[in-house]
Computed example of a mutant assay.
Amino acid sequence: MSSISDIIEGYLIKTLREAPSGTIQVKRSELADLFQCVPSQINYVISTRFTVEKGYLVESKRGGGGYIRIRKVRFATPKAHYDVLLRMIGNQLSQSAAEDLITRLREEDWMTVREAYMVKKLVSREVLDLPVSVRDHIRARMLRSIVTTLFANKGE
């Protein structure tokens, strides 16, 4: 059985896919009413499941006329996509951010399911059994190398 978070996420993703502009604007309170949950549940779903690493931009305005605007990021060229990914990875990357980025690459068909599974295992804290700062640095180097390889083979 799906959790309320999964249901809310599914609803928002479906709504995004159906939006001609690729952007949706929703009210936190209306979503909470629709799913019979507290507004903080909506905040949780948006903040954990619609991240930059997963390819989303979220803009939020609080208050009576407040809204949440969600947009799936699209790139004009593979080069632009590549450049953004490398900037996002940076010099250090947490395991959760790495997993989100790998999931995004899988969803965008830059990786197969098997490749994504293997890379997630390789960048896990179980494999990179090192102090956190060193581990996050090595994880970022590994992912920059993987992204460079993927885009060299499938790019422009």
Rank of each mutant, 00 (worst) to 15 (best):
His81Trp: 00
Glu59Met: 12
Asp33Trp: 00
Leu12Pro: 05
Asp83Phe: 04
Thr23Ser: 11
Thr51Trp: 06
Glu107Ala: 07
Val52Gln: 14
Glu18Arg: 15
Arg144Gly: 03
Leu12Glu: 02
Thr48Cys: 02
Ser145Arg: 00
Cys37Ile: 04
Ser133Asp: 13
Ile13His: 03
Glu18Val: 04
Asn43Trp: 02
Gly65Phe: 01
Ala76Glu: 15
His137Val: 10
Leu85Val: 13
Ile138Trp: 07
Lys54Asn: 05
Ala98Leu: 02
Asp129Ala: 08
Asp136Val: 07
Val45Ala: 01
Ser124Gly: 06
Ala32Trp: 00
Ala116Thr: 02
Ser29Gln: 14
Ala76Leu: 10
Thr48Gly: 06
Gly22Arg: 05
His137Ile: 06
Ser47Asn: 15
Val132Ser: 06
Lys54His: 02
Tyr44Asn: 14
Leu16Val: 03
Glu99Gly: 13
Val45Tyr: 02
Met111Tyr: 06
Leu105His: 10
Asp109Pro: 07
Thr103Val: 04
Val52Met: 09
Ile89Ser: 09
Met88Asp: 11
Glu59Gly: 11
Met88Gly: 14
Glu108Asn: 09
Phe35Gln: 05
Leu122Gly: 10
Thr48His: 03
Ile68Gly: 08
Phe35His: 08
Asp83Met: 10
Tyr117Leu: 04
Glu115Thr: 10
Arg135Thr: 10
Asp136Phe: 01
Arg49Lys: 15
Val119Met: 05
Lys121Ala: 12
Leu130Pro: 07
Ser40Glu: 15
Asp109Tyr: 08
Arg87Thr: 13
Arg28Leu: 01
Ala76Asp: 15
Pro78Phe: 01
Tyr44Val: 04
Ser29Leu: 12
Tyr67Gln: 11
Ser47Cys: 15
Glu99Phe: 08
Ile70Lys: 10
Arg144Ile: 00
Arg135His: 03
Lys27Phe: 00
Val147Phe: 04
Leu16Lys: 09
Gln92Met: 10
Arg49Leu: 04
Arg71Gly: 05
Arg17Gln: 15
Leu34Lys: 11
Val134Ala: 10
Trp110Asn: 07
Ala76Phe: 03
Ala76Gln: 09
Tyr56Trp: 00
Arg114Gly: 07
Gly66Pro: 03
Lys120Pro: 06
Leu93Ile: 11
Ala98Pro: 02
Gly65Pro: 06
Gln41Cys: 00
Thr51Met: 07
Arg62Met: 07
Glu115Asn: 09
Ala76Thr: 08
Lys27Glu: 13
Lys54Met: 12
Val73Gly: 13
Leu57Thr: 11
Leu122Pro: 06
Arg17Glu: 15
Leu143Ile: 04
Lys120His: 12
Arg69Glu: 14
Cys37His: 02
Tyr82Arg: 11
Asp109Lys: 07
Arg141Lys: 09
